[in-house]
Amino acid sequence: MGTSRNYQTQGIILKQTKLGEFDKIITIYTPEFGKLRAVAKGACRPKSKLGGNVEPLTHSLMLLAKGRNLDIVTQSQTINGFLALKSDLWRMACGLYILELIDSFTVEGGENRPLFDLLLDILNQLSEPDSNETVLRYFELHLLHHLGYRPQLHRCVSCDLPLKPVVNFFSPSKGGLLCPHCNSEEDHRYEQIEAISLKPSLPLSVGALKVLRLWQSCDYATARRVRVKPELSWELERVLGEYIRYILQRELKSLTWLKELKKEIAAM
């Protein structure tokens, strides 16, 4: 950053909130400084030079000035506005979900360059016309990996024995899979305290496990070639969704909207 008051960084705008009548506070995800919040002065004025460059879902190059409290965006130039993504309702909803995931999982100031690269890559992929739900699942899985929540998919998280090709059980609280034997022991333990309905683990089919293992170790270009049947896709969505919900301890708001939209699109 040097001794100068000004510094330059690229970043992806995660969200913006209004500050006063004409200013905005923007949350940016940057490769060098992780998540940071800054003030975009006058961004709501019609003739603002910042305006469109600080909208969410934009990859921008920014010049910031150190402020007493929050830094101030002095200049901004769009590198990629993800225009194709913004012109489609479904992809826009996916994009907003991805941004909310990043915003919820990160704290200000924690540098995580691989996560930035993943975010940028996924937004680019989502701008491709043939992108589908695989993008979201791949992103969720790798987001968890980069944040230290990589799910254990090869060995039982309780007895540490390699998993057999049968229906295993995903336990969000243990962050991985339980073999059928350990799972029934868990069941027994929950039964003893009469809380079996609270037991969080979910069955995971052999097919879904294979897909998850592959996605965890491959790049997106390979991942997108996997054809996932609707039942399997639903299973993957549920398992990853439950795990994320367990870690964050809440449902993401944009996910609720994404689910509703999916239902509506399916109904049309």
Partner: peptide, 14 residues
């Protein structure tokens, strides 16, 4: 572009 704006500073989307 809004009236009175400058082309040079317009964002890509607009």
């Amino acid at each position: 572009l809004p009236f009175g704006a400058e082309l040079e500073y317009a964002d890509d989307l607009t």
